[in-house]
Computed example of a mutant assay.
Amino acid sequence: MNIDALKSLNTPAPTGWTPGVQWDGEQGFVTTQPSADPDTPRDERWDEVLQRFGLDPERYMVDGPVRHSAWDVPGSGVQHSHRAKIVERPERTFDVEDLLDTIWTDVAYPDNPRAEWRTIQIGDTHLAKGALDGGGTDKLIARWQNSVTEALGLGDHYEGIHLAFMGDLIEGEVSQGGANIAGNDLTLTESLRVARHLVSWTVQEALKVGNEVIVSAVGGNHGQTTRVQNRPHTDNHDIDVVSAVQQAFELSGLDERITWYYPEEGANHVVYEVGGTVFASTHGHTFKGGPVAGAAKWWSGMCASNRPAAAAQVLMAGHFHSPVIQNFTSDKWICFGGALEDQSTWIHEQNGTTSKPGMLTYVTRDGEPFEFSIV
């Protein structure tokens, strides 16, 4: 065989990149045919790929990150192939695009300045938790928007709005060893997309009534990326959602009146100042011994070891799905926010527990919170 014939031979794709579908009845992968196009296929292109391999795009969809492989074929240039996870589309009575459209509504607020800061604790929203499990994303979106607009409309124009994103913004796919996935009405990527829209909308609404806006984010247990092995607390979808929104505001030049706070790498709480009041924020899943007793023990330890949280006047937390306000000491307050679901079906079937859906909001001035309300 001469050299020209050798050059004309196709170089096989890398091992594991054979075009086609692998499906085990619950999940699988689809790999595209090699081509000279390096671009990742869009949704409609994936639908064509699935259809070509015998999967109905109405029933199956691509979810999660897409892997890309490239290799050189002598005489034909670089060839590209893409590999993506496929899942069954969740059963639901709504369309995701329609839900996103409902988020962006115009709301008018009063315009009488106040010298205080308003805090809204936004956590345990569990977007993608299905109706049978006590949620329903369409209901959770409506409750999120109603809570925010009511909180921002309780008073007048404020010195500033403090938005504390307390974790568990999405239901995620790690709870109960992943068993909760069956009850989700959004895929992971869809839930993250909806969460980013809602956080972005919330920040924009806050800018309408506050001279300044302070945003913080901590990670919840449902926002964890995996439980297969231990990961840093900051490797969390909740933090990534808010960080992506920050990037969007910075790129659009709309962040001049916004300050953003996140935990230090590996930490699961953050401490910062809001208009003369020092806050410590954490999700609360690391507390042992119940909400108030666990928070008090955690905070006492922080104070005893002179950690930054010792300087806080308000400790914010979530996780327990019930609003609790405790005057810890004369100048320190423990504030647990609520959840957007009215019950966790799993817990309700064990002991009948329900909860009032809503967000905890209050006003602070010179280190003291007041005017508490669940909206």
Rank of each mutant, 00 (worst) to 15 (best):
H269R: 14
V107H: 13
H68M: 07
W23P: 11
G223F: 10
T105V: 04
I325D: 03
T202E: 02
F94E: 06
E212C: 00
H126K: 09
H68Q: 07
K139P: 00
Q51R: 09
A195P: 10
C303D: 14
A244Y: 09
P110T: 05
V107Q: 08
V271D: 07
S355L: 06
E273Y: 07
G338Q: 09
V148T: 07
V194G: 08
G135A: 00
Q247C: 10
G123W: 06
P369G: 13
I347R: 12
G276E: 11
V96F: 13
G20S: 13
V62C: 15
E349W: 05
S8N: 09
P323W: 02
D98F: 05
H68V: 13
P14Q: 15
G136P: 05
G294H: 03
W201S: 04
K129N: 03
M1S: 12
R45D: 11
P41F: 05
G77R: 10
V245N: 02
S281D: 13
N351K: 06
I258R: 01
T18M: 15
G130D: 00
V21F: 14
L132I: 04
A311G: 05
V271Q: 14
V174P: 04
L99K: 06
S35T: 09
G289E: 11
P110Y: 10
L254T: 00
D47F: 00
R92D: 07
L154G: 00
R365L: 08
T345F: 06
E190K: 04
G172S: 09
E265S: 06
L340C: 06
N327M: 07
T187H: 08
S76V: 01
I374V: 07
D43T: 14
L50K: 08
